[in-house]
Design a protein around this nucleic acid. Structure first.
Lengths: 380, 380
DNA sequence: GTGAAAGCGCTAACAA
DNA sequence: TTGTTAGCGCTTTCAC
């Protein structure tokens, strides 16, 4: 279909960007008014089938592509959701983003993306960029949801958002449940980090371990890491075992190995290491290898996240599986719910599961290694 | 600073979305005209320091946030770059996106994201969503850059784009270099897939391997996979060795193991397997484990991609490293260059490197295992 | 069922 | 240096 288009003013337009057809041109071509074209393209509500047909033909012939920027300015809604994550280098966030994107797509929305590189100082600018673009709402992960100037700002402005991975709960101040912002609690989608960690450590204890250390990463200050450590303490405490503080593993690989060397040669030496992420577990196992320790014969290792890669290791990684993609999907659904004016049902806690891989076994001279996957009891 | 704002019509606005301040309100507050506010916020060109000061104060007091939608509609530029990738579940794409995002951020641009889930049928809709949003340009990966209705469309519309991972080159038709679209060749950022694959296979040959099979994944139809197979053929041919067709590994894990079983028990049995991606290499090693074969003692395995995870394996994965993040960054830079009217310098070929990890060693009864990393010669 | 007109927030001529 | 005005593409009253 060759397109004949009204001359646009005959400026010597460079050939490097032909202007797209507008409603006006479609209207002219179809011999109707702008309003009719608009009506046809949208609800298609009050338009006779004949004219609608004509409009659609004209639009097709002109290769009409609605300009969402115009629509947006008029409607005040952007059909865009802003996403702010610490990084994409970590599979957990990348997979979650994948879920977010899929869900947004199915809602006909577009995702605008920003990362903070784990630096809370970037949160302000990153979010601001999204807000300037007038996103309808935000899906994001912050360093610490309890003290976050960014979340304070969003609450103040009534900008809808859903946190992912951050696990919010009501904070009690002086005996009364405190809410954030004017009327809305901070809403989030996550697993029950504390319970999940407890389950994993209970698993290690069942295997016969008595000396279990928790390994935390560079981001041990994060709210999640703290909750996981609480779960570790719960399990250890319930079993009448000592729960020393988490080992903060340095960034640098060789330093990490050195730090780990100290840990595994201490007395009494831990027989199992519970890592606060899968990535950390891989680093730990790598370091252990360099120290001549075998996993799980000499020491057991467990992770947290359940990224796809863990399955492919030999032996497969023992870890807590978060439904990462589902977390992203759920967040978008909840945001959407909120945007369509429905009441938010509060935070969502998705089910985790324990993957009993091959990196955790009974300590030397004990028995009963478990090798099959199971789902955790949701007791308590 | 309490904000006093002109009454907006006294509609019973629901408390769930306070309208943001506009230039008009800032102008009123500062006692100047819209134009002056606009000038101050932008170039700040022709405004006296005194008024500029006043405007800035008023803006700050009102919490003014420029509405990029309005600006965009007026300016015709969105300061948004559209990104379309097959998936985010694969670390290669996630890491590349990370590079894209970082670079976009440093250019003050926002990233609008879409994925196709590897289905070319989704490319049309996914890109259309981006185009409706009037992105300034596109960074994308397509299934096959040579026959892509999407790229044809983009060329036709003169929409600037840069391919990532797809490795374009001039196609000769009837002896003349064929260009795509009206005047512009398809521009891309990638490594030299063929050369990189050749280097890896040469490395395997140097280790003493004679029977090397190439393992391709489900997407063996992709242009990259084809180029890598050509590189494999180059190396084998130069060494006077036979280069059988690539093994197409099934999706399902157990089927994969079965297929692999056939391969490794054939006569003569391959002593090394060159996989067209790191992920595939992991799957292969996993299957080999289940078949009771040890890597690298019984069979060597090499990958392609160089994702971060490979380093943490024991032994570390032998693989071709693509500068994935850099590929993303470069693509954005090139796009930016193009958008600012400069001439495109054509496609960029970034340097790969060989990571000689521990999964490839000399076959049984041979010597000289190489363990250190090196950079490839860039000959030919 | 359809059209005319106003206006979303912003910038860029053109005037003063 | 500053203000006035037009208009980007679209939707949506309000008339007819």
């Amino acid at each position: 279909m060759p397109k004949s288009r009204p001359v646009q003013g005959l400026t010597a337009t460079p050939p490097t960007q032909q202007p797209a057809a507008t409603v006006r041109e479609v209207a002219a071509a179809a011999g109707v008014s702008l309003a009719t074209v608009s009506r046809t393209m949208n609800g298609g509500a009050q338009v006779s089938t004949a004219t609608a047909q004509a409009v659609r033909e004209a639009a097709a012939a002109l290769g009409f592509r609605p300009n969402l920027v115009g629509r947006r300015l008029r409607a005040g809604r952007s059909h865009t959701i802003g996403v702010m994550l610490p990084t994409l280098q970590h599979p957990v966030f990348a997979e979650c983003l994948s879920g977010i994107e899929q869900s947004a797509q199915s809602h006909g929305q577009v995702v605008a993306l920003t990362t903070t590189q784990y630096d809370p100082a970037n949160e302000e600018a990153a979010s601001e960029r999204l807000l300037e673009n007038r996103v309808d709402g935000l899906v994001l992960t912050v360093a610490d949801w309890r003290r976050s100037p960014l979340l304070d700002k969003l609450d103040r402005e009534h900008m809808p958002y859903v946190l992912v991975f951050n696990q919010t709960g009501l904070v009690r101040s002086g005996g009364r449940a405190a809410k954030y912002g004017p009327g809305a609690a901070r809403v989030s989608v996550s697993v029950d980090n504390r319970l999940a960690a407890r389950h994993m450590v209970e698993h290690l204890i069942e295997l016969g371990h008595r000396h279990i250390r928790m390994i935390a990463g560079q981001f041990s200050q994060s709210d999640r890491a703290r909750l996981r450590h609480r779960g570790y303490e719960d399990a250890m405490g319930n079993a009448g075992l000592q729960a020393p503080p988490a080992v903060q593993l340095p960034f640098n690989t060789t330093e990490a190995a050195a730090a780990l060397h100290e840990v595994v040669t201490a007395h009494p030496a831990p027989t199992a290491l519970f890592c606060s992420s899968d990535h950390l577990a891989l680093v730990v196992m790598h370091s252990l290898g360099r120290l001549g320790r075998r996993v799980p014969q000499d020491v057991s290792v467990a992770g947290f996240d359940g990224v796809a890669i863990g399955d492919l290791l030999t032996p497969p990684l023992t870890t807590v599986v978060q439904p990462v993609v589902e977390i992203g999907r759920t967040a978008v659904q909840m945001l959407h719910q909120r945007l369509s004016g429905q009441h938010m049902l509060g935070s969502a806690t998705l089910h985790h599961s324990l993957k009993k891989g091959g990196t955790a076994a009974s300590p030397r001279g004990q028995s009963v290694p478990a090798q099959c996957e199971s789902h955790p009891r949701r007791s308590d």
